[in-house]
């Protein structure tokens, strides 16, 4: 769930923008310029993946994917997520333009953490990779939900009820995404394990 315009206090929106801009600027400088077009292309596949809805009882949920983006892109995850969210706002109005900074942080921070944790705990076997994938995917959603609730709570005491409800709504998504993320990582480990290597992105462009 992305925050719409007009919910957050102006100071929080601006602080979100400032932090996101710092993070994105850092990524842009640190990454090889040849990698940038490639990250853009991969970002569109994450965008499309996040549009896939899975049935959940009578309703359906869509995946948030911060864990997988973090595991696959590592330090470039924040950049990828900021671009994806800008386009989501532009095309669908999912998330407000003035809340873009806060929304990027809400998804980007879990993604960066997920990438870091995934490399630490993935181990060498398929099972351990799948478990690590499930943990960071589910954990990423949970952290995103916590950040969302925190951001909503900054808007005042009136919003605490909504914040709690939003956090509760993330729990089923967390379970679903944990399972899907574990399966995705297991699949990638079997089919193309080099994609999961640390700082995998610079490795993709190299000739094998």
């Amino acid at each position: 769930m992305h925050i719409a315009d007009g919910v957050l206090p102006l100071s929080v929106s601006l602080a979100g923008y400032a932090l996101t801009a710092t993070g994105v600027g850092y990524s842009l400088r640190r990454l090889d310029s040849a990698d940038l077009p490639k990250i853009a292309v991969v970002t569109s596949s994450f965008f499309v993946a996040s549009l896939i809805h899975l049935p959940l009882g009578p309703t359906s949920v869509h995946l948030l994917l911060p864990g997988i983006v973090g595991a696959l892109l590592g330090p470039a995850a924040l950049l990828s997520i900021a671009i994806g969210l800008f386009l989501q706002s532009l095309l669908f109005q999912f998330g407000g333009l003035t809340a873009l900074g806060a929304n990027s942080l809400m998804m980007g921070v879990p993604a960066l953490l997920a990438g870091f944790v995934f490399q630490r705990i993935r181990g060498r076997t398929r099972t351990s990779n799948a478990l690590a994938g499930a943990v960071v995917s589910g954990g990423g959603v949970l952290l995103a939900g916590l950040l969302l609730a925190t951001l909503l709570a900054t808007a005042g005491e009136d919003f605490w009820g909504v914040a709690k409800l939003a956090l509760a709504a993330h729990v089923p998504v967390m379970l679903i995404e944990g399972c899907v993320g574990g399966c995705t990582i297991a699949f990638l480990f079997r089919v193309k394990p080099e994609m999961l290597a640390a700082r995998s992105f610079s490795g993709v462009g190299k000739k094998r």
């Binding site: 596949s45 993946a49 995946l63 997988i68 899907v180 995705t184 990582i185 699949f187 990638l188 089919v191």
Partner: peptide
């Protein structure tokens, strides 16, 4: 779905 996403990413 997990496998399909993996394929999409690959």
């Amino acid at each position: 779905t997990g496998n399909a996403l993996g394929m999409l990413f690959i």
